[in-house]
């Protein structure tokens, strides 16, 4: 098995094409999130009867979810590192930690949203809140999708081991996860931090 290393799996033509396709998907996603940020920034000041960003956000809790997601990105990188070493169990373990952290993030986000809604900040309250939920919801949905996707891949990894089929899939899933994290960094900065300035 040493002869067929993960690197060789990843360098296979079909795998290379999949990875390239995924990068173009990321290009598309950049436009998607860019437009969502554009909408958010355009209506940020239109708070109407609802709370302003400054009144709404609780930075401490956002900091917690940020650390959770950043850590998950790190564990994901570690998982890929073990994937490259063809260590099945360790790969599995670290991806598992990643999706658990992802789940934690979703939990925190849901809690945050319910708290806001209880305070009367609903999606239809003001344009600002609409754009906020639209942006955050799209991101949160991406995280959820990533969690489900990676869990399915982990089942495959468990059943089939690291091979021509699973290695590229896991690698691409990791790219996806990091990308979500990149988006979160921007959300954290533009929405939360600047909203508090």
């Amino acid at each position: 098995m040493e002869t067929m290393s993960t690197q060789m799996h990843l360098n296979h033509k079909q795998a290379q094409m999949n990875i390239l396709a995924f990068w173009f998907l990321i290009g598309a996603e950049v436009v998607v999130f860019g437009c969502l940020f554009g909408i958010y920034l355009a209506v940020k000041s239109l708070t109407g009867q609802g709370p302003t960003p400054n009144e709404l956000f609780k930075l401490n809790e956002i900091m917690l979810s940020t650390v959770v997601l950043l850590t998950s990105s790190f564990t994901c990188a570690i998982a890929v590192y073990f994937l490259n070493l063809s260590k099945k169990l360790l790969t599995l373990l670290f991806f598992l930690i990643t999706i658990l952290l992802g789940l934690a993030f979703i939990g925190l986000e849901i809690r945050e949203f319910t708290l806001y809604v209880e305070e009367g900040a609903k999606i239809s309250t003001s344009a600002f809140l609409g754009a906020f939920y639209l942006l955050l919801g799209t991101h949160g949905f991406h995280v959820l999708f990533g969690v489900i996707w990676i869990s399915l891949l982990l089942v495959q990894l468990w059943l089939k081991g690291i091979n021509q089929e699973t290695a590229p899939k896991l690698f691409i899933a990791s790219l996806y996860w990091h990308f979500i994290d990149v988006i979160w960094v921007i959300i954290f900065t533009i929405v939360y931090l600047i909203g508090k300035v």
């Binding site: 390239l20 990321i26 996603e29 950049v30 436009v31 860019g34 437009c35 940020f37 554009g38």
Partner: peptide
């Protein structure tokens, strides 16, 4: 360099959108 190209292309369109929406 396709990966970077794809990202730059997306960022270019995204940036245009953001600037003119602001």
């Amino acid at each position: 360099g396709y990966r970077l190209t794809s990202l730059i292309g997306g960022s270019f369109v995204a940036l245009l959108a953001i600037v003119f929406l602001i």
